[in-house]
């Protein structure tokens, strides 16, 4: 097992301010640890990796990690990453987004990146809330839950991010949680190694803005909830609707081998009659 503390000093930028910006008990730190361990497992060098992030709590990851880092505008991380990947295919491009970032303001970019099946790894850190702006409801805030802009409870249905990206054509779809941190780094590693568009949804507790408002307890209780309700995908499929309740599947849900965007684009280059450069 690669321990966070082993990998972390290799990948954190030593001249940044620590402890990091996230609140006590925030899951983003745990997920970042998993990301770093996953990268360590892939054996990629720091120069080979471009880390693109959006705006919000999760957007801060790019500041701390010592890769080629791009902190983009809200929701647009995937669009920046698309340009970067196509311009420099040798880079391993990892995109880190939050739930609001990826599925609200950036929803269009997410579904089209899936459709193109561009060889990018996206890590969507889903904490069910807009944390940095003070706890407004996001597309993944559960119905009837309280947010600073849903004081009477949210009346909107939630997105199932994994189902969306699966339907839109992503090659690799998986879900992990901050509690299942060890599993998460294996999922992220597989996603990075996957050719094509891969998505890992990492459920992550936001005790400050989401947990406290909804009386879900602190970070410990929220992690405990993940522990109690997460069911490995194969077992989850066998559950009856009555058994499901609050339970949700984790693990790999889709793993397809399909030509990625660049492979298909190379066909265009060939057809256009250029002599390879």
């Amino acid at each position: 097992m690669i321990r966070t503390s082993e990998a972390i000093y290799k990948y954190l930028r030593p001249d940044k301010k620590y402890p990091h910006v996230w609140c006590p008990g925030c899951g983003i730190g745990i997920v970042t640890g998993a990301l770093v361990r996953a990268i360590e497992r892939t054996g990629l060098t720091k120069d080979e990796i471009a880390l693109v992030s959006g705006i919000g709590c999760s957007g801060r990851i790019s500041t701390y990690l010592d890769f080629n880092t791009l902190h983009t505008t809200h929701g647009r991380a995937l669009a920046f990453a698309t340009g970067l990947k196509l311009a420099k295919p040798s880079l391993t491009v990892i995109v880190v987004m939050g739930d609001g970032d990826a599925t609200a303001i950036g929803g269009n970019h997410l579904i089209h990146s899936c459709r193109r099946n561009i060889n990018i790894t996206s890590l969507i850190i889903n904490n069910n809330i807009y944390g940095m702006t003070g706890g407004q409801y996001s597309p993944t805030t559960p119905m009837n839950h309280i947010a600073s802009t849903a004081q009477y409870g949210s009346i909107e249905k939630t997105f199932d991010i994994c189902k969306i990206v699966e339907a839109c054509g992503a090659s690799f779809v998986a879900r992990g949680t901050a509690y299942h941190a060890k599993m998460l780094d294996a999922l992220i590693e597989r996603a990075i190694n996957k050719k094509g568009f891969s998505v890992v949804e990492a459920l992550s507790q936001c005790p400050t803005q989401y947990g406290r408002r909804n009386k879900l307890g602190g970070p410990v209780e929220m992690l405990q909830w993940y522990k109690d309700n997460a069911i490995p995908y194969p077992a989850f499929k066998k559950l009856s609707p009555d058994e499901i309740g609050e339970k949700f599947p984790i693990g790999v849900m889709t793993d397809l081998d399909e030509p990625d965007y660049l492979e298909r684009y190379n066909r265009i280059i060939k057809e256009a009659g250029s002599e390879g450069q």
């Binding site: 791009l70 983009t72 970067l84 990947k85 420099k88």
Partner: peptide, 10 residues
């Protein structure tokens, strides 16, 4: 966004 990303790719 994509052209900015590409420009960063050189």
């Amino acid at each position: 966004a994509a052209i900015i990303g590409a420009s960063l790719g050189g």
